[in-house]
Design a protein around this nucleic acid. Structure first.
Length: 483
RNA sequence: AGCGGAAUGGAGCAGUUGGUCAGCUCGCUUGGCUCAUAACCAAGAGGCCGCAGGUUCGAGUCCUGUUUCCGCAACCA
């Protein structure tokens, strides 16, 4: 495997900053954080990347509408997204790349030049479909079956010739399929891998990678062509290596080439990450990603989409302000399926919070430490080892974090059961030695639980560990029960 | 049209290679306990695993057909 090399690179996708952070990205961010922290605990040097995608017409017009400078506009959003780090309890050393960063812009241009030199970029006339009614360009999927704009039926769609640069994606069908063949676990879960394989097998069309500057000015200039700016793909996707200082910094070599680069993304990003980006890397002569982990979507009750009009949108800020960071992390990690779509409603959240955090972990910590303190049980020399359970490592290696959580919670239940069965609160009156030894054993088990929770619920883990170290009962409940 | 996913007790889900697979969590009922955040433990009720065929000694688990729901359907991050 990768025993020799102790470098590990993990990244999220970059959210587009045209709206406030939503819970779906929060989940991706938290999960990547868990993997980053876990790898670190396994002795790896970890480079953990996230950031913001800040170019494109949408942002330009949004800024114009508000009458502010575009750069100021995206600066504000970048700060907002950066704030997620604290909100979600993300490890402090996460790297945050912005596609408006100077080094990213340079890297994107270098990347473009490389692909161009290697013969994978060409210019061709592209016929844009323009609806006069909307005064907007339309994509095929925005038009109805008759090829008309659904809002302006009957009005002809104008075809506008426009010269754009294209990426020769079609050249990568075979290399991609060969790459998939050689890397049978490239995309997790396997059903997503099947999906992208089937897609590539059907054939690839070259895609446009630039826009006329006169129409879309807010973007990275195409090298050696003043009239064009890069379209999203050759801009945003390059962040995964520009964040490592590619092409100059040695961090790139350490973490991209030797760090088994692992990418988290939502299922809507499957194609971009596992096929387009991989082809671009091949075109530039750069080694491929190591693994793509694909999340499902968070939905409303009954599996329906979250939307403002239905009013079932979950705002991560509200959840954290009401219940705390680790409570949100807990739900995203344990109750939201690792790979399938899952519902997130406040009712479900509250039920799970009360059952597992207040009544479960929180109460367990209270009852145990309350006994050890009042019975004068002492326990030195606890080394804080994680649970000895091979299933945990296996689940982590499969990125099945929900499974890890289930194993930990089974252990919490088991410890509650142990207390009930040995009844130290009774034996303390009849057999003090036994009561003490049972409680010592129970505290040891709690220390394993707390240590295992470190990558998952870092704040809670730390709290429990220091309570054990100080042999103190919690002054405040770890998780207050909510009605 | 096509592609992918889902369909398991009231709800949300596990069930990798077919034979303790009918299970987990929440909820519900009853009993126990009292150290603890009215928390904890135990027992119980509740499902013919979407539907119809097929393969097999044996199928949620494989094959075929079918119904319903969700996503994708390419330049939309």
């Amino acid at each position: 495997m990768t025993e020799k090399n102790k470098n590990f690179y993990i990244t999220t996708t970059l959210p587009y900053v045209n709206a406030d952070p939503h819970v779906g990205f929060a989940m991706e961010f938290v999960r990547a954080d868990v993997i980053a922290r876990w790898k670190k605990s396994q002795g790896y040097n970890v480079f953990f990347n996230t950031g913001t995608d800040e170019h494109g017409q949408k942002l330009f017009t949004a800024a114009e509408k508000e009458g502010v400078d575009v750069q100021d506009y995206v600066d504000g959003y970048a700060e907002k997204f950066r704030g997620l780090k604290d909100l979600l309890g993300i490890t402090q050393d996460v790297h945050f790349i912005r596609t408006t960063d100077e080094n990213h812009i340079k890297a994107a241009q270098t990347f473009w030049r490389l692909c161009n030199q290697n013969g994978y970029i060409y210019k061709k006339t592209y016929q844009a479909k323009y609806c006069v009614g909307c005064e907007l360009e339309k994509t095929d999927s925005e038009l109805d079956d008759d090829g008309e704009c659904p809002i302006h039926k009957g009005r002809p769609i104008e075809l506008i010739d426009e010269e754009n640069y294209f990426f020769k994606w079609s050249a990568f069908q075979k290399p991609l399929l060969a790459f998939y063949e050689e890397n049978p676990n490239f995309v997790i879960p396997d059903f997503r891998f099947n999906e992208i394989k089937a897609f590539v097998e059907r054939g690839l069309e070259d895609f446009s990678i630039s826009r006329l500057k006169s129409k879309m000015s807010w973007g990275i200039p195409v090298p050696d062509d003043e009239d064009q700016v890069m379209y999203v793909w050759f801009d945003a996707l390059v962040n995964y290596i520009s964040t490592l200082g590619w092409p100059t910094e040695s961090e790139f070599k350490d973490f991209w080439i030797y760090g088994t680069p692992t990418q988290y993304c939502g299922k809507d990003n499957l194609r971009q990450q596992s096929a387009m980006w991989q082809s671009m890397l091949m075109a530039a002569g750069i080694s491929n990603s190591h693994k793509i982990i694909v999340d499902g979507f968070i939905t409303g009750d009954g599996g329906i989409k979250m939307s403002k009009s239905i009013g079932n949108v979950i705002n991560p800020y509200d959840v954290v302000s009401g219940y705390g960071t680790d409570a949100l992390r807990f739900f995203l990690l344990k109750e939201v399926s690792s790979f399938e779509d899952s519902p997130f409603t406040m009712d479900r959240f509250k039920a799970s919070y009360n059952a597992n955090l207040a009544n479960g972990l929180g109460n367990l910590t209270s009852r145990l430490l309350n006994m050890t303190v009042s019975y004068g049980v002492s326990f030195d020399h606890i080394t804080f080892e994680p649970l000895a359970n091979d299933e945990i490592e296996k689940a982590y290696n499969e990125f099945d974090i929900a499974k890890v959580m289930n194993i930990v919670w089974a252990e919490i239940n088991g410890l509650d059961k142990f207390i009930q069965e040995t009844e130290p609160f009774k034996t303390i009156k009849t057999n003090e030695v036994k009561a003490h030894s049972d409680l010592k054993y129970a505290i040891l088990r709690l220390s394993h639980i707390a240590t295992t929770l470190a990558p998952l619920l870092p704040e809670t883990s730390e709290k429990i560990i220091s309570l054990i170290k100080e042999n103190k009962k919690p002054e405040q409940p770890l998780f207050l029960r909510k009605e």
